Amino acid sequence: MKFEFEAELWIWEARRSDNWTFVRLPVEASEEIHDLAAGPRRGFGSLRVRVTIGASSWLTSIFPGGGAYVLPVKRAVRKAEDLDAGDIATVTVELLDF
C-alpha cells in the first residue's frame, strides 16, 4: 500500500543539536496505517517503509507520535533534494511487510 502526500520538514526539538528532521504523515493516512498494522509491532511501534522524495528512495521506518506517524528524512536525502526544515516535500511512503 502506498501513500503520497505533501508535508513540511521539521526538526525534532528534543534532538535539535543532532538535526533530526522529520515529516508528519497526514492524519487520515496514519489512521488507515494504524488500522492495517493492528497487533504486535517492532520497537516503538515502528513500521518498515520504502520512501521516495524527488529522485531519492530509501528504506526506513515510520513511528507513531502526536496522533500521526512521523518519518525521519535523512541528511543525504535532504542534501540530494536540496531540502531544509520548513520546506514542503512531496513524499511517497510504501508500507512493507504487509
Rank of each mutant, 00 (worst) to 15 (best):
A29H: 10
V73G: 03
P40W: 09
R50L: 13
L95C: 14
R24I: 09
T90N: 14
D35S: 10
W58Y: 13
H34W: 10
E28A: 09
A38N: 07
E94A: 15
I11T: 10
V51K: 00
G65F: 00
S57I: 01
A80R: 03
G67I: 04
P72L: 14
G45R: 02
L9G: 09
E81H: 03
E81V: 06
I33K: 06
E94L: 13
P40K: 10
P40L: 08
W10Q: 05
A29K: 07
A37E: 09
R16G: 04
I53A: 01
E13M: 02
G54K: 01
R42C: 06
N19H: 08
T21V: 14
A29N: 08
E4N: 03
W20E: 11
E4S: 09
L36T: 07
V27S: 08
E13N: 06
T92N: 15
R24D: 12
F98Y: 13
A68E: 01
A55I: 08
I33P: 07
R50Y: 05
D82F: 12
A68W: 01
G45H: 03
G65T: 01
D84G: 13
E4W: 01
H34V: 07
N19V: 03
A85P: 15
I11M: 08
E13I: 03
A55R: 11
L95H: 14
I62E: 02
V51I: 10
Y69I: 02
A55V: 09
V23L: 08
A55G: 06
K2M: 02
L96V: 15
V93S: 13
A76T: 04
M1C: 00
E4Y: 00
G67A: 03
V51Q: 00
R50V: 11
V70L: 08
A14N: 12
L25V: 03
L9Y: 09
G65H: 00
T21M: 13
V27G: 05
Y69P: 00
V77Q: 03
G45D: 06
G67Q: 02
G45W: 06
E28G: 05
T21S: 10
I88Y: 15
S17N: 11
V70T: 04
I62N: 01
W10D: 07
T60P: 12
W20M: 12
A29W: 06
S17C: 06
G39N: 06
L25H: 04
L47S: 08
R41D: 10
T90A: 15
L9F: 11
S57W: 00
M1W: 00
L9N: 09
T52E: 11
E81W: 05
P26G: 05
A85K: 09
G45M: 05
F63E: 01
G86T: 15
L25F: 07
K79G: 02
M1R: 00
R48E: 11
W10N: 05
R48C: 04
T92S: 15
N19F: 05
E32K: 12
A37T: 08
I88G: 13
R78P: 04
R78N: 04
E8P: 05
S61I: 02
R48S: 12
W12E: 07
F22E: 11
T21E: 12
G86N: 15
V70M: 07
L96Y: 14
H34Y: 10
S57G: 01
V77D: 04
